[in-house]
Every structure is written in structure tokens, then in C-alpha cells.
Amino acid sequence: MMSSQPMDLAELALDEAGSRIAAASIKTLDLAALAHVEPTPKQFIVPKFAPAGEVTLFTGPGGAGKSLLAQQLATSVAAGVSTLGLELRQSPALYLTCEDDADELHWRQKHICKMLGVRMESLAEKLHLSSLRGNLNNALGMDGKGDEFELTPAYTRLTEKVRQAGAKFVALDNIAHLFVGNENDRGSVTRFVNALNRLAGETGAAVVLLGHPNKTGDTYSGSTAWLNAVRSQFTLNHDLQTNMRTLTIGKANYAQMGDSIRLAWLDWAFIHEDELPPDTARSIEETARARTEDMAFMRCLAACTERRRNVSHQPGSNYAPKIFAAMTEAQGIKKSAFESAMERLLYRAEIELDVELWKGSNRHFKRGIQATDRNR
């Protein structure tokens, strides 16, 4: 019968031979030899964003274009052409999706190739696109008994594909299909990421794992173990008003955290902000400026409403654009810009004119501009 008493440490002692074997199993660096070797910096498959031999977490809200961008990066690596201002060295690449079908991949690829100036046929045996949509067994691993993490046949298939293709950039789209554990369980998440780190380390590939942010505003979903388990992470954010995106490094053990790239969606591909056609760039700039002016108008209107100061669309002592231009909340926006903003907001039914607001000291209603119900 097993004793319930703690085991005496002496019982764990090894004989001399066993001790040497146990100690030798933990390898340490030979600093004497390394002192005469010049160290090499971490290599990147995608400069700053995706280091070789590591798992990188790529997150962003739905509709931002993560899948499109991942396929574009894979194409650029496979073709050895620059994209979004990033200089890329040619290497085989693999983009695997569990959400889009083959027709969607083909559609995207045609437009990506057009944007990059690459012939699609030139990518044969260099770019590997795979759709697993509809497959029921896409999970790469699952928790077994105790703390065991059991790799699945899907992991074996992926590993062999990466090796046979010689892929150095591997984008996996996305976590929800490939990970079936509890995303709030640190142990489960860490074991899953470690399995992918093994694949990255053994093949030298940059493994980019796509995922969604959570509802609280974090750039990843579930446990913070996702961020802790990877060595790098970047996120794609979408400006819905201008169709511009910002690609930002969120975690970077091997690069500068906070570095970002501004890019635009154009004809089913992404292009760097500085490479936009003049007319398109001008249109985006005008849209962004108009949005800033509209937001300032609504901000000033809210401040006036809170202070019980009624403003009007009619020129006079309480003319809204004139009053707003002198307010701190205007942040330097001029009267003429507020006049344009007022017309846009009225057209979009975001403000109402000549509304009864509140009773003044003479018991008569003060009238003026008011935000519509959806903007209060």
C-alpha cells in the first residue's frame, strides 16, 4: 500500500552514474566556443512582422481583411517581390484556410497577382493555396487525459506538406477551426501554440496564425496565453469611413513594438498608402478630413447641449458653425468646415434643425440644432 507521507528527498538521490546522465540531459551553451563566433540576428521571412522559426499571431476584427492580406503576403514571399513597402526574399509559401473555398482563393489570387505584377502561372510549385472548408477534422491537436496534448492526423498532414513544399511562410486561417480546446485555458492554449512552435522550429518557417480579437477590445481572443505563448504578434485595424487599414506590431521580441504600416484596399488587394494613385489618395484624404470635421461638429454640439446653449443653422448670434469654431472642442477646425459638416450631417439625418430643446427663463422653448436619436 502506498504511503501517504511525503517522500524523503534522500530517496530521490541517484547513484553517481545516474547523476551524470541526468545532468548531461540538460544541454548548456558552450560559451568558450561561442566567444569566437559572431552572433547572427533573428531572421525574418516578413521583415519586422514574421520571424523565421516562430509562431506569429495575426489578429484583427472580422471584415478587416486578414485573410486577403495573409494570402497577399504568401504570394509576395513566393514571388520574391516587395509589397506594402516590405522587401521580401523569395521562398516557397503556404496559405491554408478553413473558411474560404477554392473559388474565393482563385478570385483573390487573380487580383493579388494583378496588384503585384506577377503572372499566376509563375507561382506554380512556389505558392501553395489550400482550402479545407467543409472538412470535419481540421483540428491540429486536442487535449487528452490529464495534461497530455495529442496531435491529430491533421497536424501530421500539415507538417508533411510544409516539409515537402519547403515553405518558409505558412499562414493558417484560422484559430477557431484549428484549435478545439478552451481558449480561456492557459495550459490548453500554450500546448497548442507549442505544437506549432515545434513545426516552425523544425522547418525554419514563419508560421502565421490568424485569429479574431475578443469583445472587450483586446487584440486577441480568450486567454492572455495566446499573447504569452508567441514571440510576435501584429494586428490589422480597419477605418470603415475611408477603407484604410493600419497594420501594427503589437508584440515584438525581435522587432520594434508599435511599428505600423498604413495600407488601403484597392480592387481586391492591398496597397501601401504612399503607392495609391493620386485620385484615390486625394479621395481618401478628403473622406478622412470630412469625417474629422463631422466628428468635431457633433462633439461641439454635444458640449453646447450639455451647457444648455442652443445653436442654430440660421446665421445670427447663435449660428452653430461660428460658435463651434471658437470652442476648445473644435480643435482648430474653421467656420467654413463646420458649415460643410452641418450640410453632410443633415443629409445623413444625423442632426435635426429648429427643434424644441428646453424651456428658457421666460417659459418659452429654446429652439435649435439637436442630434437625432441614434447619435445621442
Rank of each mutant, 00 (worst) to 15 (best):
A252E: 09
T159L: 08
K145T: 11
S67P: 03
P41T: 13
T40Y: 01
L31V: 15
C98S: 13
G60Q: 04
N214Q: 06
A74L: 05
A206C: 08
L132V: 07
G181N: 06
M257C: 05
A139F: 03
T248E: 14
S25F: 00
A64E: 02
A341N: 07
S122W: 07
L140S: 01
A225H: 06
Y220N: 04
A171R: 09
H313Y: 08
A330P: 01
S19K: 11
E343K: 15
R376E: 02
A23L: 15
T40C: 03
V37Q: 14
M7I: 15
I323D: 02
M7Y: 02
T372N: 06
H238V: 02
V46G: 04
E148R: 13
R376G: 02
L86A: 08
K66R: 07
A255N: 11
L129R: 05
T75D: 02
A200E: 04
K66Y: 01
S317P: 00
E356G: 00
R299Y: 00
T56A: 04
L151C: 06
A326F: 01
V208Y: 03
M257P: 01
P315T: 08
F297G: 08
K335T: 15
D267R: 14
G85D: 07
G201C: 03
F324A: 09
M257V: 14
A10D: 10
G63C: 05
L151V: 13
A171C: 09
K42Q: 15
Q90F: 01
N362S: 14
F234T: 06
E54A: 13
A302T: 15
T203F: 08
H272T: 03
P277D: 10
I175A: 10
A50N: 11
E352L: 12
L158C: 04
